[in-house]
Design a protein around this nucleic acid. Structure first.
Lengths: 220, 220
DNA sequence: CCGGCTCTGTAACCAAGGTTACAGACGCCC
DNA sequence: GGGCGTCTGTAACCTTGGTTACAGAGCCGG
């Protein structure tokens, strides 16, 4: 660990680390690598071997599945205090990555090498912590499978618009990226929502007029 | 555990259980529930609370995500010696099931109640075992997401046909069920494959004529 | 050999989503 | 104010996959 402040911040974000044995913590301090990455950096990519386990200190990593044609489907985000299920799975299973991770904003990571991650798992508290996040992410992934397999795009769009406040500032392109779709379709669907009186559109802004109606659409 | 033979079989299938402490094993013997279910029984279903962790002794469980309209997308199977990632995730996260499990053939289960599963996890060897299977299944689920989100049905069909020997006995309906699609489409696509000389069709039988060609189609 | 069952073939139609191709609108900087 | 880049609107067209609706083929038991 390069800086003491980083260590403190780390423990503030991942309190579980405070419960580690002194020995393990020393090992971490000695060997973990502190990384500052600008927005848009590819942290890992499909077919790559997994070289370490990332703790996110600031910023966030967007984990996506990339289509052959260049489109991307977002799987989940890793924000400070969380862990990356795919990294854990790859380290545990000695398998290469099967998704891509890209920093969404400028991001600070602490990367723990493979062997030291195994050592971390030797401590029960940490293992339970990872296990717990594993199970939450599984639920998310199941939700995602349900959406891409069964939901229509307007339903997914409606769901995406909800729960981000009543007035959101975003472009159609960004929404399309979240859904793994394309801009034209999102524009078309948004127009539909606007015609139903569910939202009001203006440049880089969408106002939610009828949250209940949107929820009904999303849920059905 | 109701019968001694079942205990032996169990350990043959899940050798990891042999490494448990005597105390834990006694607890299991006393409290686990032995179940024999006919084919087609729903073992668990969406929104249900998870009441126990299943060890599959014989048969298999097909875990699917059900669409509102009644169609189903298979997620994975649990066969003897394996564990059900969704059950683990639900037990760990105290969350309800988010998929459905149905016995595919007559199936024998040993169901370990929630508290005793937690006790099992208290033993490192077992925890590592579950962790390992977790990570393998994650990879499968990622693969599934990739397929449903990005692959066309003919590619998925080609992939499905491969690796089951050169002559497979199945109906179009069964293939459709595996893909989460419908019979007519599978018939249509199979006809296409036959016209390309990749397969030969007859009643309840598909002969693979050109595995390399199928692989090419599936991979692209 | 006949009636009924399952499995397959197939055609017409439809809906969703994606692609291509523009046009205009807005904002910003020079 | 003029030019440029980004964002939005929109229409025509296409592909994929699903739905509906039958017809016939193979099979089996009575």
């Amino acid at each position: 660990m390069n800086t003491a402040p980083a260590g403190d911040t780390l423990i503030a974000l991942y309190p579980i680390l405070a419960t580690l044995t002194a020995r393990t913590r020393q090992r971490l301090q000695a060997r973990a690598q502190f990384l500052e990455l600008p927005a848009g950096t590819t942290v890992f990519d499909e077919r790559q071997a997994c070289r370490g386990f990332p703790f996110v200190i600031s910023g966030s990593i967007r984990v996506v599945k990339a289509a052959p044609n260049g489109r991307e489907l977002p799987l989940y985000r890793v924000t400070p205090g969380e862990t990356c299920i795919i990294s854990s799975a790859c380290l545990l299973g000695q398998a290469p990555y099967n998704a891509r991770g890209v920093t969404e904003t400028d991001t600070t990571l602490l990367v723990v090498p493979n062997e030291d991650f195994q050592a971390l798992l030797g401590e029960q508290a940490f293992r339970d912590f990872v296990f717990q996040l594993f199970s939450e992410r599984i639920a998310d992934l199941m939700q995602l499978i349900e959406e891409v397999a069964f939901r229509k795009l307007d339903q997914r769009l409606a769901a995406l618009l909800l729960g981000k406040g009543q007035r959101l500032h975003t472009t159609h392109q960004q929404l399309a990226d979240e859904l793994g779709s394309v801009r034209e379709i999102v524009s078309r669907l948004l127009k539909g929502l606007a015609e139903q009186g569910l939202v009001a559109l203006s440049r880089e802004q969408i106002e939610i007029l009828d949250p209940a109606g949107l929820r009904r659409l999303a849920g059905g």
